[in-house]
């Protein structure tokens, strides 16, 4: 088991009343598994992903990664863990505009102390993801699909065990979204686990699907039925 989540809860205040963005949520993810998380806006997807990434502390519950409680680690240790074990593709434009494509990809390697260089690995990733010709370009010159590929390459830079992707095909045209899905499938085939928050049915076909509503995971079978009904409508 790569990831085990038990009884996870996170509350926020909106005006005078509190609400649970994630409520008593349990989830298991095996090594090399591809899991898609569906849900409407505001359903708690990003909050859940950020808690798994160690970016926000849950009010209760536990997240075990490789058997280690994520929130038993202090912030610097959790940051180092995230850098080493986790690749994260945030929602929307996430590239740093003052760095070239190649430097954007290399960046995670240099954020924690490490020996060796990053150039060879970064070039290997640009070849693999078909963006070699863009190495010296800056993000402002890239299309939406190219930016997502660069963000994916960056998430893979430190050879993580789990990649979290928040809406990786959002705003992409159908063709580009299909290319992205195919790319994720290839990478998943090499053993890297993926947890993807999405609305894209194409991605849902790559592995297990889960649906989140009001901060809770719905029963998996019901979730699939609900989604299919929603699609027909």
């Amino acid at each position: 088991m790569l990831l085990e989540i038990n009884g996870l809860r996170k509350e926020y205040e909106r005006g005078e009343h509190r609400f649970a963005a994630v409520d008593d949520l349990c989830l298991r993810l095996e090594r090399g598994e591809f899991v898609c998380l569906f849900g409407r806006s505001g359903s708690g997807k990003t909050t859940l992903l950020n808690m798994i990434a160690g970016l926000i502390t849950p009010d209760s519950g536990e997240i075990l990664f490789d058997g280690v409680g994520l929130y038993s680690l202090d912030d610097p240790a959790r940051t180092a863990w995230r850098n080493e074990k986790l690749g994260y593709m945030p929602q929307g434009a996430s590239l740093l505009s003052n760095l070239s494509v190649l430097d954007n990809i290399r960046l995670p390697f240099h954020l924690q102390p490490r020996s060796g260089g990053s150039l060879e690995k970064a070039r290997e990733l640009t070849r693999e993801l078909g963006i070699s010709r863009l190495e010296k370009s800056y993000p402002s010159a890239l299309s939406g699909g190219e930016m997502r590929r660069v963000a994916l390459a960056r998430a893979l830079m430190n050879s993580p065990e789990l990649v979290i992707a928040d809406e990786p095909s959002n705003d992409l045209d159908a063709q580009t979204a299909r290319e992205m899905a195919s790319l994720l499938s290839v990478l998943n085939g090499r053993g890297c686990a993926f947890l993807v928050a999405t609305h894209d049915q194409e991605l849902g076909r790559l592995g297990r699907t889960l649906e989140i509503a009001n901060g809770r995971l719905l029963d998996q079978d019901h979730a699939t039925e609900d989604r299919e009904v929603s699609n027909v409508q």
């Binding site: 970016l55 610097p76 940051t79 180092a80 994260y88 996430s94 995670p108 954020l111 924690q112």
Partner: peptide, 10 residues
């Protein structure tokens, strides 16, 4: 935030 996500410490 992007820096933090990628593993930069505070």
């Amino acid at each position: 935030s992007i820096f933090r996500i990628l593993g930069a410490s505070r």
